[in-house]
Simulated assay, not measured.
Amino acid sequence: MVADRLEEVLDATYDCLTRYGVRRTTMDDIATTMGVSRSAVYQYVRSKDDAFRQLAGRLHDQALARARKAAVDQEAPCADRIRGVLAAKLDLVLRLSGPSPHTAELLDAKARLFGGICTAFTADLRRLLIRLFEEAGTREGVEPAEAADICIALVIGLEAVPDGERLLEPATRALLAGLLVPGPCAR
């Protein structure tokens, strides 16, 4: 199956990323990690850059799927749905900043290879949050887009804190108390 082999290429690319980083990884490294020839890898990706772009896309798409799932969970209060969207972003960053100093390269919005992916991911999260704030209602003087931007800024701040994952729940609870209209959705 082509999709399965592509997943293997991307898994090998991730493995190489953790060891060497984007610049030092070669197509030979990816092929050796897979146990195949370099020409076999070229059947699934056009170049090393293409492999890394697809890897970054896959990881961001997985996080976006988690965010979308949280956003549409009609059984959960709006505050929990918002927190779920934010957790998807924070989890992606923590996942990529932990195993190796090189994996965080996939998060660089200014990078030539990944900038568009990172920017689109944040824009998609922002749209999800705006819809949730429109549904829940924001306090007077706070537009849903502003509330979304504030929440994204909170997560960006938590990404830099050693205990950010643990702080997400109390931080969003406090923030949402000031952003959401009081009522059942704010809980």
Rank of each mutant, 00 (worst) to 15 (best):
T26P: 06
V2N: 13
A147I: 05
R187Q: 13
A160V: 03
A63V: 06
D91L: 04
L86N: 06
A123T: 13
D73Y: 03
V36M: 03
K89C: 02
D163S: 00
T25M: 08
A123H: 14
E165L: 06
V9M: 02
I150Q: 15
E134L: 13
F133Q: 08
A67S: 08
L94K: 10
G178L: 08
C151Q: 06
V45L: 12
A88K: 09
L10Y: 15
P77Y: 01
M27N: 12
E146V: 15
G98F: 04
P162C: 02
R68G: 07
A67C: 00
L158T: 09
H102Y: 15
Y20N: 10
A123K: 14
A70F: 01
L113Y: 11
R19Y: 11
L106C: 01
D15E: 10
G178P: 05
E146R: 15
P170H: 00
F121A: 10
S97G: 15
A12E: 05
Q54E: 10
V142F: 12
A136T: 07
Q43L: 10
L176M: 02
M1R: 12
C185P: 11
I130R: 14
R24P: 01
C151D: 05
V155C: 13
C118K: 06
L59S: 00
H102A: 09
A71F: 04
G115V: 03
R166M: 00
L175R: 06
R95K: 09
A40T: 11
M1S: 13
D11R: 13
L113R: 15
A79S: 14
K48D: 00
D73P: 02
E7R: 15
T13K: 06
G141P: 12
A12V: 05
V181G: 04
Y44L: 07
L96Y: 13
A88Y: 08
E165C: 03
G115F: 12
F133T: 10
R5M: 15
R81Y: 01
R24T: 00
I30P: 02
V161W: 00
L132R: 03
L129W: 08
A160H: 09
E7Q: 13
L55A: 08
K48R: 15
A109I: 12
G35F: 14
D149L: 13
C118F: 03
D50T: 06
G57W: 12
Q54C: 08
A76C: 12
L90W: 01
E105R: 13
F121Y: 12
A79W: 08
A153H: 11
E140D: 11
Q74S: 03
A65H: 09
S97K: 12
F52T: 07
R166Y: 02
L17K: 10
R81S: 03
F52Y: 05
I82E: 03
R187D: 11
E105D: 05
G137Q: 02
V85H: 07
L6T: 14
L59G: 02
R112M: 07
R126W: 10
A79R: 15
A63D: 11
L129A: 05
P162M: 03
F52A: 00
Y20S: 15
L158S: 04
A145W: 13
D50S: 11
